[in-house]
């Protein structure tokens, strides 16, 4: 296959499987799982330094900056002000200008507050951030985010951590048709085939955490999803056959007895 690189604002990604670093047993497991995933883009959260146990290990000691691009998130932020504060702190911590922007609107579903998200996107894009907004699977909102300066749009497949898969693949398809920025499914993938479906639709990448961390064997699941993402991408590029209601024989009639 011809080289098939994903480039976002000049940053080149080798992998279309982006992986979260949350919910692993320890940093050793985090590092091993991420290695197995083949990913070169990992998300992290911004939190207070543990000042009572200052000798506790640091996540960044386990992630080689030459191998991985670090995408800090604003997880846990429920309003624009907090999301801006976390984004600016993340940038000052010095890994990059990229921010996975979350402005959460509801605790039970973790659905985004898209009004706040749009405002925060606009402000951060103006400040020079490369904004990766986590949003609903709403084609109109995705377009608005793009117009506000988002570098990509990241519609959810299903609620964060739910593992329900792509609940509305048709919306994702419409978002793909309407967007001129890359589309990354963020949240909802439960197992490898869900990731393959997202990629077969034409998504540019998928971002996954719980499907891996919550598997019985996270390393094996990371590897499974790695192949599913590659297979899905290849299938998308290959172009699927049209669906038909009735059968078409694969073997010829000619030559039958």
């Amino acid at each position: 296959m011809k080289e098939d690189k994903l480039i976002i604002q000049g940053i080149e990604f080798k992998s279309r499987f982006w992986i979260g670093t949350g919910k692993y047993k320890d940093f050793d497991e985090t590092a091993r799982v991420i290695e197995a995933s083949g990913s070169d883009m990992v998300t992290v959260a911004v939190r207070r330094v543990n000042i009572t146990d200052r000798k506790s290990p640091n996540l960044l000691d386990f992630l080689d900056p030459k191998k991985y691009k670090i995408l800090p998130n604003t997880a846990g932020c429920y309003n624009v002000e907090d999301a801006l504060r976390y984004s600016r702190l993340a940038r000052e911590a010095g890994v990059s200008d990229m921010i996975k922007l979350e402005v959460i609107g509801d605790e039970r579903t973790l659905f985004p507050d898209v009004i706040g998200l749009l405002r925060a996107t606009e402000i951060l894009a103006k400040e020079g951030f490369i904004v990766f907004p986590y949003t609903n699977d709403d084609p109109v909102m995705c377009k608005r985010l793009e117009d506000a300066g988002a570098a990509v749009v990241m519609p959810l497949g299903a609620p964060i951590g739910s593992g329900l898969g792509l609940r509305n693949p048709y919306n994702i398809k419409i978002i793909l048709e309407a967007s001129s920025v890359p589309v990354i499914v963020d949240a909802g993938v439960g197992i490898a085939s869900d990731a393959a479906v997202a990629m077969e639709l034409g998504c540019d990448a998928v971002l996954i955490n719980t499907a891996v961390a919550g598997a019985k064997d996270p390393m094996a699941m990371a590897e499974a999803i790695k192949y599913a993402v590659m297979a899905g991408r290849l299938a998308y590029k290959a172009g699927r056959m049209p669906k038909k209601l009735y059968a078409t024989a694969s073997s010829p009639i000619d030559g039958m007895l």
Partner: peptide, 10 residues
């Protein structure tokens, strides 16, 4: 004063 760093997250 707030001092923050990166931790595991999705």
């Amino acid at each position: 004063i707030e001092i923050v760093n990166f931790v595991g997250g999705g």
